[in-house]
Structures are given as structure tokens and as C-alpha cells.
Design a protein around this nucleic acid. Structure first.
Length: 585
RNA sequence: CGGGGAGUGGCGCAGCUUGGUAGCGCGCUUCGUUCGGGACGAAGAGGCCCCGGGUUCAAAUCCCGGCUCCCCGACCA
């Protein structure tokens, strides 16, 4: 492609709205144009990159035997009522009404339509397993799109759905997809890690995210410092070995006067114990109060003073209930003394349980920690030597603690958790039978019984992958694109446009490269050298080739890889070969 | 949804406090010069000043209402 004919222009200055590197460079290089918040057009260069990513994904999906389909973006809302997600999907479904008054939605994902398609075509266990995928537009009306293409509302996504006759089959399909994803990201040319993730209320037992490490990423992930261990998980999921408490003989419960002491730090200092010997109490309220409670329901969470609550783990320990912090009024109404509250005495005659419905949850660290300092449930008093089992208990004991950098790895290794920021570019998880049940995807098994198909689903955000790649691969001049997803492989710059021999030689060389199958962006514009070099750096194609009067005096062209400062010369007569070698670099 | 910021040629900005001809840099057009890291000269084109209402002889500027975009947080199958 001749740059003089290529649609789209580079910008010297990025729009003021762009803050992240990928947003700035993709806009300045003329890859994308913002249309509305979180909604973008792709210009030719950007679309070529996106197409390359799509094709890599397509090849690797096909290699696993997955079959490509295409499903509608606009769907009847009834379909979502059938799956039960019409009112529960977050963010809320974008809806529209057609001319007959029928309610339609704009699809944020395609479990419903896939399962519908399968329900009509699946009859026997002999039909299984299979995997259907598509590369399709999705729309999610996010509360807050941000960071250019990293978090958008409308986006291209590869979504795949596997169907198996049993859990063992699902395990195989799941592993196949994980392997395919590793190949995809490796071919794209980026370092993506698979990490354990929370599967959420509807997920099955396994869920993994594929995360590209980048400081601008929204995700926090923890990776074990021991490379042989390999443990990696996102912050919602990450487990760790909690420092064990010194074994002690349980001592007598003892009340202490603690005037004005409200925080764990102050309490620990006042009593003269480390914070890990204290109990912290935190209060939540179910977002949708259960019918039995008539409001006023409190989730009373106890956790060791040195730990923080992980709300995802907490939610899971309660079967996926939506929780929010309780307001001070709600806490007070339950008879809980904020600042001096604890699970000790919850069930006393006039204790909180007598006034409000309370679910008590304790972090498992409390069970083995003896002689803890906790609130006395009356202002300015705390209790020493509280012991789980003897002095208090909980309805649920679970790991509900937030991992932090430096915590010990949960595996049997000597590593500790190292914190990274990252961008989630892929997510795979085991769905189970939730959709096959609601949409009726069943088959007759070998023994003649009707069974539900076991599903998995697997997504890759394509535009986000491009943006994340730029986040991880750029310098202060522009993008440094991996060859596999660069819109072209070579930026051929023709300098000295006033010199007939240069023009002729460059045109001829361009034709040679194209004939040899090299993808070339030919800067044939009548612009000064500085403009061409800067645009070459900005667009970030892997190899820059210069044809100039200076080089031609020796019959040479100049080659420079975008990821290196080294400039090499090669005879023009062997230019095509030199370009191919340099690209392999 | 809470907090903060911003809307003026394609991009970046000034003008608004104190109302009176809409301005600068980049980019764009034409001609000439120049030709290895965003060149120079000359001459041009291009603006419902986010929208609606109000005040005024007169509104980019003052007042009221709304919309949009960005950032932080909440949220993110």
C-alpha cells in the first residue's frame, strides 16, 4: 500500500482525551477513531491489525476442531427471560423495541443463542463433544468505559462454547482451549499469563484468566516468586498461607477498659499485642434483603486484625449473595457497637441476635489463633483472650481474606506472592449445565437416559488484545508492534523525493517486495525525512527500510528494526532477501 | 451512581474575570525553495464558539436548564 493512497492520517498531537499509551498511539497513528464513549471505528490500519488477530484466533480454534458460526447481535428479550438473565445481567442489557413492539436486546454475550442452536441439533451422545465459536460484535453498556480500547462498550470478541456429555469431557475441552489460548497469545507475540480466577456465582469449578502484564491494566494479579511453583491468580481469587499464630494455652476471658479506642492499630498498641492477635469486625448488608428478614439483615464478618476482607471470597462463602457495606444506621439498629463489636456475645440475651437477623462469618485464620483481643460489644471496652469455639463461633468459617504482596504462596514452595497489574485479554471457564438446562440442550446417553449437555465458554477480546499489546510494547515515539499483528511488515521510506533515481529505485523495490509476498507500507509522500521517520516510529511496523540518495551512492538500502537502534545496510540488488532476513531477526 | 475537570475550524490551545470585528500553533490548498529526525518564504481556504432558553442596543463571554466527553471511585457474566 502506498501511504499517499492509504486512508487515514497520523496526528502530531493526540486528542486531549487520550491518556493511556495505547489510546494515544492508536489514535495518533490513525488506527481508530472514537465515535462515542467506549465506541470506536477502526480505520484501515487498525482493521488490518484486528483482522490479523482474528485470523490467528480462527486458525488456532479450527485446529482444535472447533467450528465457526455466526449468531445475531440483536435478539429477542424472551430468550434472556428463558435463561433467567434478562433482569440479572450486569451491566443491564441494552434494549430496543422493534416496529411490532417486540422487546429486543443487543447481545452482550451469546450463551443463550448458542444453546438454542444446540438444543435444536443435539440428540445423541454420539453428537458430542463439539465446540462452536464466532467472532462477533458484543455490546455491554458499561457504567464507565475507560482507557481507550482497554474498556469499551461495543467490541469484537471471539466467544466459544464447548458441549460435552460429562464432566470428564468438559475437562478435556477446557484443557484444549487453554492450550489453544497459549498458542494464540504466543503467536500474537505477547507474554500472557494464565491465572486462576473467580468463576462467579454462575461458574463451575474452574475459571482461568489470561492476563497481559502492563502497569495500565485494571486487574491485580499475584504470581509466586518461585518460578518452579508457577502459582498465579487474580486478586479476587488469590489464596495464601496465613502466618500461623503461636500456640498458646487458652487464658481466661478478661475485659479491659479501652477509652476512645476505635481502630485495630490503636487497640493493638493500647493492649500491647501485635495486630494479628486482634479480631476485626466488618458489617455488610445483602443487596436484596431476603423475604424472611424484612430488612435489617446484617452479615457480621470477623477476621484477624492483620488481614483484609476479600469481598469476592466473602460473597462466594455465602453462595453468591450480593453484598454492600452496612450503613452506620443499620449497624446501630442491630444493636452493634461499632468500634467495640465482636462475635463474642452475639447470642447473649440482649445481644445483637435478639434484635436483628445476623449471619456470622469468620475467616478461617481465627479458628487456630488463640487468645485474641476483640470488642466487648459495649462502648470503650474490649475483651482479651477470646478463643474460637469457646467464646464465639460463626455460621460459616471460610477463607475470606485478601491476599497481599509478600504473602506466602499457598502451594508447598518457599515462594511469596508478587503483585502485578495486568489486562485481562481472555477468560475461559466451566459453565456446567446452567444454560443447557434453561434452554433445553439435552441428549440421549448410551444408557438411554436423557441428560444435559455440559458446557464451557471461552472468550477473547480482540480490540482489547490489540490495545493491551500496545500497552506492553511501545516507547516514547510510538508503538512497537509484533510482526504477527502489525498491519504491514515493512515501512518503506523513500527519501529525496526530488531525486529521480531515488524515486525510480524505490518504486521498483516496492514492486519487488510486494511480488515477493512482503506486506509493505510504502511512504511515497513528498515529505521531509523527519516526518517519515517519526511516522514510521509512531505506526511501529517491525521493520523500517530506507531508500535514499545517500544509500544509493553505494547501491545500498538501509534497514532498521523498530525494536532496535541498530541500523544495517544491504545491497539494493539483494534487498528483498535482506528484508526477509531482518524480519525474521 | 458519587466526586472532580472539560466542550471555541481536522488536532492542540488562547479569548470568558471586565459583553462590542473570533484568534494562535500544527494540519490543509496553491506557487517557489529545500531534502537523513516533525524545513523555509509568499498567498489562501476552513468556525450553528456543545444545545435550548433568558438578560441586553449587543452574548463565545453574564444567568437558568440540558447534553456530551475525560479522570478518580462504585461497578465489571
Amino acid at each position: 500500500m502506498r501511504l499517499s493512497r492509504s486512508f487515514g492520517k497520523t496526528l502530531r498531537q493526540a486528542p486531549a482525551d487520550a491518556e493511556t499509551a495505547s489510546h494515544k498511539y492508536l489514535t495518533r497513528a490513525g488506527f481508530v477513531q472514537q465515535v462515542a464513549a467506549g465506541i470506536y471505528s477502526y480505520l484501515p490500519l487498525g482493521w488490518r491489525s484486528l483482522t490479523k488477530i482474528s485470523n490467528i484466533i480462527r486458525e488456532e480454534m479450527n485446529r482444535t476442531g472447533a467450528q465457526e458460526v455466526s449468531m445475531p447481535v440483536v435478539q429477542p428479550r424472551e430468550l434472556w427471560e428463558q435463561s433467567g438473565r434478562a433482569d440479572t445481567f450486569q451491566p443491564p442489557l441494552a434494549t430496543l423495541t422493534d416496529r411490532r413492539g417486540r422487546k429486543m436486546i443487543i447481545a452482550p454475550t451469546h450463551e443463550e443463542t448458542t444453546t438454542l442452536m444446540v438444543a435444536a441439533n443435539l440428540e445423541s451422545y454420539r453428537d458430542l463433544p463439539f465446540n462452536l465459536y464466532q467472532i462477533q460484535t458484543k455490546f455491554r453498556d458499561e457504567a464507565r468505559p475507560r482507557a481507550g480500547l482497554l474498556r469499551v462498550r461495543e467490541f469484537e470478541m471471539k466467544d466459544a462454547y464447548s458441549f460435552d456429555k460429562d464432566e470428564e469431557g468438559l475437562d478435556v475441552s477446557f484443557r484444549e482451549m487453554a492450550d489453544a489460548y497459549r498458542r494464540i497469545f504466543s503467536r500474537v507475540g505477547i507474554d500472557v499469563r494464565m491465572v486462576e480466577a473467580d468463576s462467579g456465582p454462575i461458574g463451575g469449578k474452574d475459571s482461568n484468566e489470561f492476563v497481559l502484564l502492563a502497569d495500565s491494566g485494571e486487574d491485580t494479579i499475584f504470581v509466586c516468586s518461585d518460578e518452579n511453583c508457577g502459582y498465579a491468580a487474580n486478586a479476587e481469587k488469590a489464596e495464601f498461607k496465613k502466618p500461623a499464630a503461636e500456640p498458646e494455652e487458652p487464658r481466661e476471658l478478661e475485659e479491659v477498659h479501652t477509652p476512645g479506642i476505635k481502630t485495630i492499630e490503636a487497640l493493638a498498641e493500647f493492649v500491647g499485642v501485635p495486630v494479628s492477635k486482634t479480631v476485626k469486625a466488618v458489617f455488610y448488608t445483602p443487596e436484596t434483603p431476603s423475604e424472611t428478614s424484612a430488612g435489617g439483615e446484617i452479615v457480621f464478618v470477623s477476621i484477624r486484625g492483620d488481614l483484609e476482607v476479600n469481598e469476592t471470597k466473602l460473597r462466594n462463602s455465602m453462595g453468591g449473595a450480593e453484598l454492600r457495606f452496612a450503613t452506620p444506621e443499620e449497624v446501630a439498629a442491630a444493636g452493634i457497637v461499632a468500634g467495640s463489636a465482636s462475635a463474642i456475645g452475639l447470642d447473649d440475651e440482649n445481644g445483637p441476635r435478639s434484635r436483628a437477623r445476623i449471619t456470622s462469618i469468620a475467616d478461617d485464620s481465627l479458628v487456630d489463633s488463640p487468645n485474641l483481643v476483640a470488642g466487648a460489644n459495649r462502648t470503650d471496652y474490649h475483651l482479651k483472650n477470646g478463643n474460637y469455639g469457646r467464646d464465639f463461633s460463626a455460621d460459616v468459617v471460610a477463607d475470606i481474606a485478601m491476599a497481599r504482596a509478600g504473602d506466602a504462596c499457598p502451594n508447598d514452595c518457599n515462594g511469596h506472592l508478587v503483585e502485578h497489574r495486568g489486562v485481562e485479554v481472555g477468560h475461559i471457564f466451566k459453565l456446567g449445565t446452567r444454560y443447557s438446562e434453561s434452554m433445553g440442550a439435552t441428549f440421549i446417553d448410551e444408557d438411554g437416559s436423557e441428560k444435559l449437555a455440559i458446557m464451557g465458554c471461552y472468550g477473547i477480546g480482540i480490540g482489547r488484545l490489540l490495545a493491551a499489546t500496545v500497552e506492553a510494547n511501545h516507547d516514547d515515539k510510538g508503538m512497537i508492534l509484533p510482526r504477527a499483528i502489525a498491519p504491514y511488515e515493512v515501512y518503506l521510506a523513500r527519501l529525496n523525493t526530488n531525486d529521480e533515481t531515488v524515486v525510480t529505485a524505490a518504486d521498483k523495490f516496492y514492486d519487488e517486495l510486494v511480488s515477493a509476498g512482503v506486506e509493505v507500507l510504502f511512504d511515497d509522500r513528498d515529505e521531509p525525512p523527519g516526518v517519515k521517520f517519526n511516522d514510521a516510529d509512531l505506526i511501529g511496523l517491525p521493520l523500517r527500510v530506507v531508500v535514499s540518495a545517500r544509500g544509493l551512492r553505494n547501491g545500498e538500502i538501509e534497514l532498521k528494526r523498530r525494536d532496535s537502534d541498530e541500523i544495517t545496510m544491504a545491497p539494493l540488488s539483494e534487498g528483498v532477501q535482506a528484508v526477509k532476513v531482518a524480519l525474521e531477526g
